[in-house]
Amino acid sequence: MTIKIIKAGLLTTIQDLGRHTYRQYGIASNGALDSYSHQIANWLVGKSKTSPTLEVTQLGPTLEFTQPMSIGISGAEFELLINDTPQPMNTTLHLKAGDVLQFGKLHFGARAYIAFAGQLKKSCVMGSFSTNLLAEFGGYKGRALKDGDEVAISSKTIKNTRVTPSELLQELHHNLQQKHVIVRITKGREDNLLTEQSARDLFEGQFKVSSYSNRMALTLESQPINLSQALSMTTVPVTTGTIQLPDSGRPIVTLADGQTTGGYPRIGQVISADLNLLGQLKAQETVSFYKVSFEKALSLYQQKEHFIQQMLN
């Protein structure tokens, strides 16, 4: 069977948890920006979190299913229609042959994930199904879906209907609805260059997400943050969540498709537990940073993982 892409939406790509041993070759991890929502979508159809999903961005797609299929959708809160009838997110949906799934209005967040009970007929590239948009490999022909594409997948329906526990959604999305997100960060290697004033600007200010942001990086708008001295940096490795301060004084946050190396002072690092929030921000929304210790960051990660595991039992 195939999924016919009637309308592709703004940026709909195949993603999983990414490829993780290729930064040394200049290849970013790729993968779902909100890996928790990706995991929940998979759970709704009884799949493991390593299974590929479709990542939907802000303006969702319209898809036609040629055979029966159970699906699960989680993440940013969209209105959903199946054959023009409203349907809930975060519930297993059982589609019949010929059903049309349409994404409507986006209420909050930026990215949602569609998981399928069937298997996508795609092969892994460098250990992952994720699309590398930059180098055009992985996923569907190395690119975002276009109108008229047909994605081959095996037809499968499941008996169970699962519903994402509301406590879990509350925990993951509690500040997305306010269009302002607090992201916790640990220290960056060059944050000693922050003056008292610039540290205040960084930790007390609000940063507006610029429209130049994409899957590579969040570029932020703010009053320039000034360092105590200009620093000529040697190129260094960066990772998803590294916050760099270019000469403009406006921070950029590396995301899953971002460059593997950087050349600007690293003024912070988003903690692993909060990386998913970065993927739910869109232009004009705001973010602020709250500093925690490495120990705290690790315990927050473990708590979050434990909580999700409990909820998705």
Binding site: Q24, Y25, G26, I27, A28, A135, T235, Q259, T260
Partner: peptide
């Protein structure tokens, strides 16, 4: 010396 910047870019 190293790879980075773009996929497969050699410094």
């Amino acid at each position: 010396y190293m790879l980075g910047f773009l996929p497969g870019f050699l410094y």
